[in-house]
Design a protein around this nucleic acid. Structure first.
Length: 471
DNA sequence: TGAAATGTTGGGGCG
DNA sequence: ACGCCCCAACATTTC
């Protein structure tokens, strides 16, 4: 009768879970619930890599909840119908910040409350709520450094909540869909590479972050830029699915001693916060540029070039290595994301949305807020993207961040025997490797990109400068 | 969390 | 001894 439902969404953990903690505080039976409702997501349903991760993460959550005493119930949407059908007196969830799910949650809350059901929502996914941080003019920030300074100066991060010891199950446990019946796993093949690279679930997430904070974080500031080295935490997919909370990470970080490295690492959590801040305040940005004038940018349309990029066949080794790492493992090193993103949007001048869409399908850490910020940043049309006409030179970037070519050799086997001297510009090597020719010439593509950017510039600026010089 | 072009400076070679 | 040129190294500007 007095049963509480805890609706799990992107918070697939029992530790530091405010919704679960609040439900348990009622000292009534608790029904843990997951609803598969891809049609309630926008602008895209969860991608293939995300579904794979979700399947395994739910499996892990099932294990944890079963041990605690109240097994997970899995249902298919629509969410509102499912929640109504369970006949709970109280419903608890942790908030989401993407426009469509957020609007849905608001509707569901109003609807359930109108029927006398108590609903409470909590923050479990962020250090700071997106509406909590504002600039001097009481407006949202558009520059990261100013935003993060303000967070660190004025924001207060709450301590993580303890894990429950036991969850009292309802006397009659409602039936659940079989996890396998949701069809989250890819048909064949593709899942193998993901399985070889990842172990979803909260226990692994905690283990990984502890191990990272215990060792690799010392060299984080410099090592994180080299994709062939194990210099990053690889925690992003765990964070996206809420297998671990940023508060837990914040807490663990502050136990440690390596101050500078830690502030650099926390800054990356800051970017994640900033991404959610931007998505909340500018909900149109997953598909539209934040900077209005970019609507006029002369993008190219080339299915052939897009395909070459997706398949890691651009002829630029660092780009192709990244795209193939993505396909094989569901991950791309962040440095390489920037290079590959710059290549798609600047060299090929293909709309950043096409890149965002591909990443959405293939990344295990696909996250609407972070993906949107990342793509708008690299395309130059988003927040903090000055100078917006920056064009990464894939050869120089490769030589700088993969100087020994190990990363390229790992993912582009055609080049595994090539001398390091040529590894980032195989077209200049005396002995030809069996590898594609560059789809575009760097210098030409760069010049064309700059030409395209100049079309965005208001003409007045240039004329004013000229006249100032003359007099 | 760039790259490339352009400008400046200072030391060394050399007439 | 001096001016001139070259060029590397660094700084600034521009894209």
């Amino acid at each position: 009768m007095g049963c509480s439902v805890v609706w799990f969404r992107l918070d697939l953990r029992t530790e530091d879970n405010p919704a679960l903690t609040a439900a348990l505080a009622r000292r009534e039976p608790v029904l843990p619930l997951f609803i598969w409702s891809p049609e309630e997501e926008a602008p895209w349903e969860p991608g293939g890599a995300s579904r794979w991760w979700l399947h395994h993460s739910l499996k892990s959550l099932q294990d944890q909840l079963e041990k605690l005493g109240s097994p997970l119930v899995i249902r298919r949407g629509p969410s509102l119908e499912v929640l109504r059908a369970l006949g709970a007196s109280h419903v608890y969830w942790n908030r989401r910040y993407e426009p469509k799910p957020m609007a849905r949650d608001t509707r569901i809350k109003a609807s359930l409350e109108a029927s006398g059901i108590q609903v409470e929502s909590f923050n479990s996914a962020l250090l700071f709520e997106p509406w909590q941080i504002e600039n001097g003019e009481r407006k949202p920030f558009q520059v990261f450094t100013a935003y993060w300074k303000k967070c660190l100066r004025e924001g207060r991060v709450e301590a993580p909540l303890p894990a429950p010891r036991k969850i009292l199950a309802p006397r009659i446990h409602p039936p659940s869909e079989k996890l396998e019946a949701l069809g989250l796993l890819p048909a064949a093949g593709w899942g193998a590479g993901l399985a070889a690279s990842w172990e979803p679930g909260a226990p692994t997430a905690l283990r990984k972050i502890r191990s990272f904070l215990g060792s690799a974080i010392k060299g984080y500031e410099t090592e994180r830029d080299f994709p062939s080295r194990a210099g990053t935490s690889l925690i992003s997919p765990h964070l996206h699915f809420g297998e671990i909370s940023p508060r837990q990470i914040w807490d663990l970080v502050h136990e440690e001693k390596v101050r500078r490295a830690h502030s650099i690492f926390l800054k990356e959590l800051g970017w994640r916060e900033f991404a959610h801040h931007l998505l909340y305040h500018y909900p149109h940005t997953p598909t539209e540029p934040l900077r209005e004038k970019f609507r006029a940018f002369p993008w190219r349309k080339s299915a052939k070039d897009l395909r070459a990029w997706q398949q890691g066949q651009t002829g630029y080794p660092i780009v192709d290595a990244g795209m193939r790492q993505l396909w094989q493992t569901g991950m791309m090193h962040n440095r390489v994301r920037m290079i590959a993103g710059s290549f798609l949007t600047k060299h090929l001048r293909i709309p950043w949305q096409a890149g965002a869409r591909w990443f959405w399908d293939t990344l295990v850490d696909a996250d609407l807020a972070s993906n949107t910020l990342g793509w708008q940043w690299i395309a130059g049309c988003g927040a903090d993207a000055a100078p917006y006409f920056r064009v990464f030179n894939p050869v120089l970037q490769g030589e700088k961040f993969d100087p020994g070519g190990e990363y390229v050799r790992r993912y582009v086997p055609e080049l595994s025997k090539l001398e390091t001297k040529w590894i980032h510009k195989p077209w200049q090597a005396p002995a030809k490797a069996r590898y594609v020719e560059p789809v575009v010439d760097h210098a030409t593509a760069r010049a064309e990109a700059l030409e395209a950017f100049s079309s965005l510039r208001p003409h007045g600026v240039l004329e004013k400068n000229v006249s100032l010089k003359r007099y």
